[in-house]
Amino acid sequence: MSNSYLKHLRKNKWFHGTTLAAWHDICKQGIVSNYNKGNELDFGYGFYLTPIKEQAEHFISTMLEYRKQESFLSE
């Protein structure tokens, strides 16, 4: 494994961009690592960790905007 990957994997703080409802589920159930096992996604829809806070914030902002647009179109 390259040194650039190892540098990131050694970080003590990770960020996850998610909705409040999903955060409650994670707190209640923990991370279900085999949620989508056998499908193209490793940890379920939208689950990822990043050592960069702004990257997680951007992800959830984009997802919330997408859901707003999706809701508007379905009315």
Rank of each mutant, 00 (worst) to 15 (best):
A22F: 05
K11F: 04
Q55N: 05
P51W: 01
S2M: 06
F43T: 05
K11R: 14
F43P: 03
L73V: 00
L64F: 03
G17D: 03
K53H: 02
N3L: 12
L64T: 11
W14D: 03
H24Q: 13
I31G: 05
P51E: 06
F59C: 04
N39W: 12
W14A: 01
E57S: 06
R67N: 09
S2Q: 12
L20V: 12
F59W: 08
T18Q: 02
Y35R: 14
I52C: 05
G30V: 10
T19V: 01
E57N: 05
K28A: 09
N34Q: 15
D42F: 06
G46L: 05
N39P: 11
K11C: 14
C27L: 14
P51S: 09
A22L: 05
W23K: 08
C27K: 11
K7F: 05
Y48E: 03
H8I: 07
A21Y: 11
H24W: 13
T18E: 02
M63F: 10
K11G: 05
F43D: 04
S2I: 03
E75V: 06
T62P: 00
T50M: 01
F15T: 00
A22D: 09
K53D: 02
K11S: 14
M63R: 14
E54W: 04
V32R: 12
N36Q: 14
H16K: 03
N36H: 15
I31A: 09
K53N: 01
N34R: 14
E75I: 06
T50E: 02
L41D: 15
H16L: 07
A21I: 01
L6P: 03
S2H: 12
G46A: 08
D25R: 06
Y5C: 05
A56T: 00
I60S: 00
H58A: 07
Y45P: 03
A56R: 00
K28M: 08
D25Y: 02
T18Y: 02
K28D: 12
C27M: 11
K13H: 03
G38E: 09
K68W: 02
D25C: 11
D42T: 13
K7P: 01
F47E: 00
Q69K: 13
F15Q: 00
H8T: 07
H58K: 07
L64R: 12
F43R: 02
